[in-house]
């Protein structure tokens, strides 16, 4: 089923009439189906974060539009956008972005709290998800009291707790060592499988990308190439490396 339909989105940074305009995205169009796990790769500065921010409605496109579940998100006003973010989108960031002033538990339920959920509902969802993500024992700790991997798991938990239609992850493994990185990727795969949540993940890491079902390569604000994972994981891995070496953005 079609979840996301992106039509001719472009993003121009800099003042409208100023000389220093920069076109970070150039009329990008693509579609995402429900339950897909998609990787977004590209050299630094190619526009990946810009794209993700627009899809997550943190930023507005200069031109073009996109629909989520048939609804035109670019037509929403500020208030509706905030509502939309809480209901439909889960974010996972490279630097976790947990609030230092709150325990992990409070951080995780924050989106629900902003949404005005009932306490029992919050507790119930938290218990279930926390169990799945293996963080029940550290829920009452503060972010600076737990490791980066645990923080990222908590961040993933926060992204999931609202049952979003789509999770947007910007280099979620960027700050993790390979072991916790792999654990997180397995977790995302598991989430993708068990809840059927659609995931869009920006990454520089070829290994991380090999967990995806499909990879979109971006160059200079345009979709340059798409790759689908076949049955052979090694072949997929190799072809990602091939494309990346052409793009010149490989980081390994």
């Amino acid at each position: 089923m079609l979840l996301l339909k992106v039509e001719n989105i472009s993003k121009i940074y800099g003042t409208k009439r100023g000389a220093k305009q920069y076109e970070a995205l150039k009329r990008i169009s693509f579609e995402v189906h429900e339950g897909e796990f998609i990787g977004v790769m590209g050299a630094s500065g190619s526009g990946k974060t810009t794209l993700l921010n627009i899809l997550g409605s943190i930023d507005r496109p200069t031109n073009g539009r996109f629909m989520l579940d048939g609804a035109d998100i670019t037509a929403l006003n500020k208030r509706q956008l905030a509502q939309h973010r809480i209901e439909n989108i889960g974010f996972i960031f490279q630097d976790y972005n947990l609030l230092e002033t709150m325990t992990l538990k409070e951080n995780i339920i924050l989106p629900l709290a902003l949404h005005g959920c009932k306490v029992q509902v919050m507790e119930e969802r938290l218990r279930k998800l926390g169990g799945d993500l293996g963080i029940l024992s550290i829920l009452d700790k503060y972010p600076y009291e737990v490791s980066g991997g645990e923080q990222q798991r908590a961040a993933a938990c926060r992204a999931l707790i609202t049952n979003p239609k789509m999770i947007l992850a910007d280099e979620p493994t960027g700050n993790l060592d390979s072991r916790s990185g792999r654990a997180l990727l397995e977790l995302l795969t598991q989430i993708n499988r068990t809840y059927g949540t659609t995931i869009l993940m920006v990454t520089h890491d070829v290994f991380a990308a090999s967990y995806c079902q499909k990879i979109m390569f971006i160059r200079d604000g345009e979709i340059y190439h798409e790759l689908y994972a076949g049955d052979d994981k090694q072949k997929f891995f190799d072809s990602i490396i091939d494309v990346m070496s052409v793009l010149g953005g490989e980081k390994q």
């Binding site: 973010r85 960031f93 609030l99 949404h115």
Partner: peptide
């Protein structure tokens, strides 16, 4: 400041 940035990202509207 960064906390508010983050909060806005997860859907805090300006009224809240």
């Amino acid at each position: 400041r960064h906390q508010y940035e983050m909060l806005r990202k997860i859907g805090m509207d300006s009224q809240v």
